[in-house]
Design a protein around this nucleic acid. Structure first.
Lengths: 216, 216, 216, 216
DNA sequence: CATGAATGAGTTTTCATTCAT
DNA sequence: CATGAATGAAAACTCATTCAT
């Protein structure tokens, strides 16, 4: 009687609402500064229910990380077709990455900022996904090297370092693009593609990475 | 094990001890999770003394950020001579950067991870230094473009994006190098130099950035 | 000895218990010296519950002042009938006042001693009620003057001063009566009535205020 | 060299400076809220010196109370000549009282507000002086009764109550006079004299206490 | 299921007080 | 004497977490 009472909802739905709220709060306040009270209120449920479904603050945070990591990972994987050439695959992956992070800033904050700042326990969760992406890039580079008839005398560590650098550059650009109004995912991807594929040296010589003509 | 209970030290010395301890704890636990108790204990002093000298947790954290930012900025500036060519300057700067972050992992964690995660107030402290570095790199790229007789049809935003990407790559590599035992600052710098200057494309073609012959 | 550990009480009840405890502690120790720990313990609840219901020490103190001020004000108002002559109204009011302060010595201490000693913020709370009483007395004196066919050449300031003096005397007598065992509210009221209405001079001449014959 | 350094001063002088500072701070902040740091700073000495001379915060406060109580008591005693009639003595005493409290508001605050709010320990200090004054007034009333050929069928308790009321009225008027600009000690004394000596009843009948013609 | 009532354990912060120089 | 260095003890306040209904 009175205010509209949200109906009984199936558990799965309720859980997603809680995770939505939690990602928002965790992403903005950080793990420690986020309060379960605030999360429960934003989710529109009572606190005990949060505990019933998600056990503890730690578990809740872990669940957030996992969900967001999976979502980002899926978005990138979905954006890339395995039968295309290496630079096209990188280009596609980057665009998917920048598009997803721009659309889910809180989720991205959870992964990029918050999860890494609170002990190995949480960092490990992200690392899993990050390594998946780094591995993806690493394979890309290796494949490209093979395609270019380069034998793998690029030492493994060297390649890993390159992949790290590329992913790091992408992360920085994502933050920069989010903070610089009027920057599209496509522009961010193009900038990074130029940087990564052609290199500053080539850019200086007027030989940028050939802009993608293969699509829309 | 550790420092002997040395009593009655001049204020300046004690303050540095406190900052050392604080950087360590803040760097590992994050701002919120760090407790003043733990910091005081690690510094070997009582909590009231910490407050007497540094006023509050917030001020203490700010002092940490400022000290570490200055130290890193100084290290990089000291490592670079203004009269050398652009790629040499970048190479020198990167080596100084990786050397410093490797030697002060906790300080680097404070700047790179923690400060950015806890409110604009703290982030602004770091942003100042970061922008100093980004500006340095931006100038470098512009100079290189000029040296290569490229007119500045590299749009300003494009250059800014490239600098962001480069700095981001450096930051990621610093973290990776810290976490990957046996990686030297020199190797990290070389990897990034190759990546940034020659580009993946060139690397694939067997045209890496010419390894630095100009120094020791 | 005291209340049994009764658990799970409705909020309104718990709040009164907390205010009871707070008035007792504040009244005896003063605002600053009172500790929330002690108040919570005396109330038989945990500190967090006190904060949950009453927000802060400041708010708790303010709530105490307001409750006690209202109670005293109500007691006096209830004791006085507006259609009786002035001296009878004063007599009734004084008896109600002394009776109430005797029955609630801690509440009276909060109002009379503690609230006025700790910042304008709190003093203002009491001042409202005190001025209500002073105004009541001021009106009484003015009415009495009119009834005695005195034109109001009693300057306003003079009347205000008299009212202040009367209220001050009442306050002092209340404290004295509380501290002097065996003194009834009736006796205190009679003493003050004599003092105020007849004056020392008359008393000396053997002309006291005619003892109240009009009531029980 | 540099700032003027206050010379070595004899202990007695230094102590008075400390008490001056302490009375000011205690009078304004209250016992608990006053900090030894602030007092030492206002006194222009180092904290350890305060402890050397006055032992503890408690002792310092007690010393303040004692000094101010003595000063007030002396002021009143000095203002009254024993060979004059009772009403004249009361009038003189009241003027001295109001003049002193107006000139030493912080000292008066210490006695009237602060000392009574922090446990029997301190209250007892003031009570001593207060009882001295009440005794003085009590004697006055008794003498006046004798002079008026009244046998002492004014019960002792009755007289004590009257004295309490008179002193209370004086205290309230002192506070009121301090807070009401343009009110002189003389006016306050006259108001109280009217109230106390003639009584409201007489005032109503147009028979105020005869204004003092005997002096300046 | 859903919720109001309740708390143990910990946080930052302050202050009176004491030595060693 | 005078002072900078130093601290034990406690205070206000918060939060994740759990029951009883």
């Amino acid at each position: 009687m009175g205010a509209v009472k949200t109906k009984r909802m199936p558990r799965a739905v309720r859980e997603q609402q809680m995770l939505d709220a939690a990602v928002r709060i965790f992403g903005r306040r950080g793990y420690m500064a986020a309060s379960m009270d605030e999360i429960a209120e934003l989710a529109g449920v009572s606190k005990p229910l949060v505990y019933l479904y998600l056990n503890s603050k730690e578990d809740l945070f872990t669940a957030c990380i996992r969900r967001e990591a999976r979502a980002l990972s899926d978005a990138v994987r979905t954006g890339v077709r395995g039968d295309l050439p290496a630079d096209r695959r990188l280009w596609d992956g980057l665009r998917a990455f920048f598009a997803h992070t721009a659309e889910h800033p809180d989720g991205w904050a959870v992964l990029h900022l918050q999860a890494r700042t609170h002990g190995e326990l949480f960092a490990a969760e992200v690392t899993a996904m990050r390594e998946e992406i780094v591995a993806f890039v690493t394979r890309l580079i290796a494949v490209a090297a093979r395609e270019a008839h380069r034998d793998p005398d690029l030492a493994e560590r060297e390649v890993a370092g390159l992949a790290e650098a590329l992913v790091g550059a992408a992360e920085a650009l994502a933050a920069w693009a989010n903070a610089t109004p009027g920057t599209t995912a496509r522009q961010a991807a193009a900038t990074l593609m130029n940087f990564a594929w052609a290199g500053l040296g080539n850019l200086m010589q007027g030989r940028p990475w050939s802009p993608p003509r293969f699509e829309d």
